[in-house]
Amino acid sequence: MADNFPDLIDMRAVRSGIDSWFNGIVSTYGQALETAFLPVLRLLNGIEAFLLWVPWFVLIPVIAFISFAATRDWRMPVAVIVMLFLTGLLGLWEPAMATVALMLTATLFAIVTGIPLGILMSFSNRLQAVMLPVLDVMQTMPIFVYLIPFVMLFGPGKIPALLATIVFSVPPLIRLTNLGIREVNPEVIEAVTAFGATPMQKLFAAQLPLATPTIMAGINQTTMMALSMVVIASMIGAGGLGYEVLQGIQRLDVSRGLFAGLGIVFLAIIFDRLVQAYGKRVQQHLDAGNT
């Protein structure tokens, strides 16, 4: 074994030190962490149970109607109906709903955590300087590096899958919220300040509404990244369409993997278009008068 770099420190000792520290955390706090996140699991399971409780022939028209309301374009609901119907036809209705539930819950938590973080970041250059590299790490660190520790901390299943999905998908939302607020027309902000707005009034009257299109783009990216995580999430027991894909590839069952993959693509298209259409509707008053 040709070692180019000398062994200056005994990495084995460092590693086993870190490992035993982590094991200590697992044995001390593992149970408490799992219990603490049970409400989240219940929410996730509740959403999933609800989606499965609603009959498909009710759910498909409802989603089609929502898509029409968002786009005002008859082609969108037609596409939604066709894609959802195909998903059911391929025998993927239940895993698809599990995936939707996971994605919705992850997106919800990403919004609840990501937007406030993005706001704080836009207020402070120092926080931005700290957060940007952290976000870089979150986005480039291979998922498995934190996936397996999450499993050890929270137990295998949906909670670590959800957390990993959030960690993976929230950075664009934080970034775009920060960017959106920083890019709000400075004259509008100045005007609001000149009329005596408190920082909170400034935020809610001007910054957030004007940054909404950018924030919506962030939410869109977050949903897409959450969807792209479903296969990996299924490797730690999240189930859903990802597990179907996983079964397909691990058993070399090409058709199963392909169909489940198509199901994921359908969901991605539907959510992408819905969020985009909603973003455009929010944006319509913001276009002009804002030079």
């Binding site: 004259e187 509008v188 005007a191 609001v192 005596g196 001007a206 008053h285 913001l286």
Partner: peptide, 20 residues
């Protein structure tokens, strides 16, 4: 803030209106 609220107001070159 009190000064800005009650004593001095301002009009801007590009209007600075809230588009929403």
């Amino acid at each position: 803030r009190d000064l800005r609220l009650h004593r001095v107001s301002m009009v801007f070159q590009n209007f600075g209106l809230l588009p929403n």
